[in-house]
Structure formats: structure tokens, C-alpha cells
Design a protein around this nucleic acid. Structure first.
Lengths: 125, 125
DNA sequence: GTGCCTGCAAACATTTTGCAAAAAC
DNA sequence: GTTTTTGCAAAATGTTTGCAGGCAC
């Protein structure tokens, strides 16, 4: 994990970072909190929010905006499929999109996010 | 404007709908509230939220997730550029994306949203 | 030892909801 | 007249923040 400036490497940061990198789900702050509490019983939700924000700013994780913010430890280029029924977030690695330009008339694109909405196979049964 | 089932067409709905269709900005619920208050001085913010939700469900407007929810009366296919500095939302009609498939392994895609992030030309000066 | 970081709780912002009155049909 | 919708206020939800003590360096 990167640390910038006078930033310190705490246990809370390490454990949240490791957790996000190890799971395939896209947890909310609340879910991260519940998960890391097993290893850090005294951690607070405020700290989780602060660390998630910090990791996001350092571009070590991505934020997924879907009502409540969810977080993705996988920062490789991929899209997300959000099921409108169960609200689960799925990764889409299929090459179904091709972004040709790195610049629009409005400004230079630093990053982009693609969200697909629909009903997942499980829910459509 | 479409009305479904036993839905009634009220002044509040008409004015909010007209407002969203007439502006080029992407207003938040609060902004919509301030704007329509000129014509409906007694409208409440709760009503604005209810009507925005209703219009969204009928697919007459789109919701843009960018921290606070913003709304777009233009439902034609286009992407959004969000300036990380001024937080303004811009429309991107340029054909810089081509979504080839209407189906992924996860489920059938009903709609998609593309968000570009960067610094707009005004802020980068 | 210095100063960044945490836990805690309170504050804040945004959105939803229950209810009686008002409006649409 | 009936039923939906509104305005209002309170509640719920999600997130941020101030501060004193704790921990990394």
C-alpha cells in the first residue's frame, strides 16, 4: 500500500486495504466495518469512512456510486452491472465497450465509470 | 407526460417535469425545489423528492449519481462528464463510446450510464 | 517526544415517511 | 364522493467532523 507525505501506516489501514483486495464483492462502508470488526473489535465506523476516503484519493480503490457508496479493491478497467432487483453489483470484464478518446470537448478524461442496469440471471428466474 | 395506472396529473408534477425538460443543467432535488418554488411557493421538498422518484420510475428522467443525486430531463443516449474540481456535470454527446452488446453473462442490460471524470476546461485554466 | 490517526459522539446532509388536509377525477 | 397527492414535520439514513487520547515513527 502506498503512503503519501507524512501519512502513517496503521493497522486499521492495512486490514481494510487487505480486506478490499481479498474480496470479490463490492462492500459498502457499513459492510467493511462489520467485516474488519472481527480483527479490530474497537474500530469505529468513522474511521472506516476516513480510510476509505483516503484509499480512494490515492486511487488504490474505486468508489461505486449506486445509492449508497460501495467500494472496489479491483482497480483494473472493468464495468459494473447493478441488478435493479437485488441491488447486487457484478463485475463486467467482457469487452463490450470501447472508449476511443481520452479527451472530450469538455475536458481531459482522467477516468471513467460504466454502469449497466438490469436484472441479473438469478433474479430473472 | 405519461401517467400510469390511477396516477393523477397535478400542477406540481407538470411544473417539475417542464422545468427539467427546459433546462440544460443537471439539478439536484434541492435545486429543483428552489426553481419550482417561484411558480409554486407552497411546494415542499418532500414532494419534489416524491415526484422526481416517480418520473425516474416512469423513465421520463434520468438520475445521475454523483455524491448527491442529480436529475437529467434529457433521456437521449449520452454520457456525463463530472468535473472533479467544480463538480459540475456536462453532457457528452460525442460518439466516444460504442456499447456493442445488450447482454452480458450477468444479465440483460436495460440501460447503462457512462461517467467521465476529469477537470473541465474552465477549471484547468 | 512529536504529530498523525483513532474512537467516540455529536453534527450534518440528504432522503424517506406518516398523517391530516387538499386536490384530481 | 372517492382516492390519490400534497405540505408539513419528524424520522431515518448515510457520511463527516471536533476533540481528547493513543499510536506510528
Amino acid at each position: 500500500m502506498i503512503t503519501k507525505n507524512k501519512e502513517r501506516l496503521t493497522n486499521q489501514k492495512k486490514i481494510i486495504f487487505d480486506y478490499l483486495k481479498s474480496v470479490k464483492i463490492h462492500p459498502s462502508a457499513e459492510t467493511v466495518y462489520s467485516a474488519v470488526k472481527k480483527k479490530l473489535p474497537r474500530i469505529s465506523l468513522g474511521t472506516v469512512y476516513r480510510i476509505l476516503k483516503n484509499l480512494k484519493e490515492k486511487k488504490e480503490i474505486n468508489e461505486i456510486l449506486s445509492g449508497v457508496s460501495c467500494y472496489d479493491g479491483d482497480i483494473s478497467p472493468h464495468a459494473h452491472f447493478i441488478c435493479e432487483d437485488c441491488q447486487k453489483i457484478f463485475d463486467v470484464f467482457e469487452k463490450c465497450h470501447f472508449l476511443k478518446y481520452r479527451r472530450t470537448k469538455i475536458g481531459k478524461i482522467k477516468k471513467y465509470q460504466i454502469y449497466f442496469y438490469g436484472i441479473c440471471t438469478k433474479c430473472s428466474k
